[in-house]
Design a protein around this nucleic acid. Structure first.
Length: 289
DNA sequence: CCTTGAACCTGCGGGC
DNA sequence: TGCCCGCAGGTTCAAG
């Protein structure tokens, strides 16, 4: 039937879902051919990019922060960031369709399958590195939100003295990785914390509530992505995985789910939207203090 | 060091 | 219908 595809929108759960979805198709395959259809994305492709990839075997597919990592048998790792609008699309063997608009990189695997990187806004990037432990773009990344290094103690410590709004703070990849504009709003709503509070001003139990909320939100989104993946085939026209069950994001003017359950309030609280640091924040002023 | 705002780029939808 | 504006899920850099 249709092409086998990887559809993504790029916060941690989406990148994680892509990594998991690509794994059965890419693991232990080799890049037979790589074609660049332009010389750069957000950054230039590294020197000899094609030459360094062609013939290499993909040993493992993983994720760090919002980056996809393809470990190769050449002692290098292909680093891919999807930016705001990047997608990786798998094409079945024999699928000889002409490249579409914004198809920037065409990979052909040794079994004939294709992998296409499409990115209209070109905020994505691809790079190759031999040593991730000294890879400059990763040196200042904060802890993985689902790892042991992310907890109320470490979060509080990293936000000490910070007056920046807590919503902005948790989107800072040096504080914790993977949380983007959607899940920042969602997590703060779940934690009952106002996005406008200074980052340093939370009480200990609030840092704990926020850590738990971030983890719960991201885990649920990953689970949702995985269940929607359905063997990695996406019907065309589908707008994406997770649009459906956001509690606050994109719901400006709609009734808050918590408030709607209240028998005490005479009016139903509505979700509000405000711009913080140039990004839309959605929240309920009744539920979040 | 901390914080904010702008820049990068294209497409889409709403308002007039 | 067409044009203009604002907005979009990320990251980086400059300036205050």
């Amino acid at each position: 039937m249709g092409a086998s595809e990887s559809q993504t929108m790029p916060e941690l759960p989406e990148v994680e879902t892509v990594a998991r979805g690509l794994t059965p198709h890419l693991k232990n395959r080799r890049f037979k051919q790589v074609e660049l259809r332009r010389k750069d994305l957000r950054t230039p492709f590294p020197k000899d990019f094609v030459k360094r990839l062609e013939g290499a075997e993909i040993l493992d597919i993983s994720r760090r922060a919002k980056y996809l990592l393809l470990k190769l048998d050449t002692a290098e790792t292909l680093v891919i960031h999807l930016g705001m609008s990047g997608t990786l699309v798998l094409r079945p063997k024999g699928h000889n369709a002409l490249p579409e608009k914004h198809d920037h990189v065409l990979f052909t695997l040794d079994n004939g399958m294709g992998l296409v990187f499409n990115d209209p806004r070109r905020f994505g990037l691809m790079d190759l590195t031999g040593d991730l432990t000294t890879y400059a773009p990763f040196m200042h990344l904060g802890p993985e939100p689902l790892g042991k290094l992310f907890n109320s103690v470490t979060l509080k410590a990293s936000l000490k003295g910070r007056n920046t709004p807590i919503k902005t703070a948790i989107m800072n990849q040096e504080v914790v990785v993977g949380v983007g504009n959607i899940y920042a709003s969602e997590s703060l709503f779940l934690a009952g914390i106002s996005p406008f509070r200074p980052a340093k001003s939370l009480k200990d139990d609030e840092y704990q509530a926020l850590v738990s909320a971030i983890q719960k939100t991201l885990k649920a989104a990953i689970k949702s992505g995985g269940s929607t993946l359905r063997d990695f085939v996406r019907s065309s026209g589908d707008s994406g995985y997770f649009q459906h069950h956001f509690k606050v994001y994109g719901r400006e003017g709609k009734p808050c789910l918590c408030g709607a359950k209240s028998y005490i309030l005479l009016i139903t609280p509505l979700i509000q939207k405000k711009v913080q640091q140039g990004r839309a924040t959605y929240y309920c002023s009744n539920c979040q203090k």
